[in-house]
Computed example of a mutant assay.
Amino acid sequence: MSDLISTIDPSIAVDGKTGFDTSHIAEVKAWLVSQFEAVGKDVPDFEYTPRSVAHLHSLVTVSQAKTQAAGIVAADLRQKAVEYRSQAARIKEILENVGLAQENLSTNAVASVQVLANVANLLNIRDTEISSYLVAMGDISLRKTGVEEKRAKVQKESRVLLDYTRKAIARLTYLKRTLAHLEDDAANCEAQMVHWKTNLAIMLQKEQQYIQQYYNYKALLNRVGYTSDISHGVLVEMAEHREELEKKTKPILDTLRSYQDLPPDKALAALAIEEKRRQYTAAEKYLEDVLHSALATTE
């Protein structure tokens, strides 16, 4: 009864008539009496409201429909049972007429027939013809082949998954070793980080110092009139021009330096020149004497 209630569409019960329907109440009461009498109980007292009557009437309709369907199925099964009994009696009569009654068969024959029947039931075939057995066996063979193919596929996938699992385990082991190594190096790295932090603080101080020096030098260059036109290329060109000027002025400077030994007065300069001439004449005479003495010694 609970199964029938669960199959009722709720909209049917909710949309029932708002007023009492005598025919519906009579059908509901008759159905309730029949159902409770079937289990040996009395119908419990309850209030018949439009909602409850509508719901119970819907339940009655579904129950009667299912009862009718069950009756049709039961009648069909009874008819089939009668037909099977009739066919069994006819087959038994035929077997008795040909001397193949069960009483006349040996124990081995009965066992063989029973085995054939069991195999037929197992193979889900209707008769014991060889063709039926062959078809059933072929179907089983095909299903076996399909199962073997699926099994081979599953085994292949299992091997692939096993290979992946082994690789994953190896990678996990490697990562664990790497993690342990990194944990061991953590202390050294922390000390190095402290050293780097100290150096970073010093570098920051140096940076501030260099920035301040940069601004100071920039202010100094602005004060002395430095412009962006004075670049490295310009300085190189000026240096090359200076070298060229030095090459041109060096002979003149050498000549001028030779005149620095002369007195500034003209008379004194003439006397100095005359003194140089006498020294030159004396040197020539001394050279001639040396040459004559050398020639005389040779002769």
Rank of each mutant, 00 (worst) to 15 (best):
V115W: 04
G99L: 14
Y214H: 11
I25E: 01
A219T: 14
S293L: 11
E129W: 01
Q102W: 03
G16E: 01
A81Q: 02
G19A: 10
N216M: 08
C189Q: 08
G40T: 02
Q68V: 08
A54C: 08
R277P: 00
S231T: 15
D265W: 04
A111C: 03
V60Y: 02
S63E: 00
K206M: 08
K247C: 06
A168F: 08
K29F: 02
T255F: 07
Y217K: 10
V62C: 02
E47W: 05
S11N: 08
A283W: 10
A70C: 03
Q209I: 03
Q213L: 15
E299F: 10
G99T: 03
D76E: 14
S52H: 07
R257L: 02
A75F: 07
Y210L: 15
E27N: 14
E274R: 02
A168S: 09
V60F: 02
S141Y: 11
R90E: 10
S132K: 01
V110Y: 02
A30I: 02
S11F: 03
I252D: 02
L59V: 12
K29Q: 15
D185Q: 14
V115R: 04
G19W: 09
A180L: 09
S112I: 03
K150R: 12
E47P: 00
R51D: 10
S86V: 07
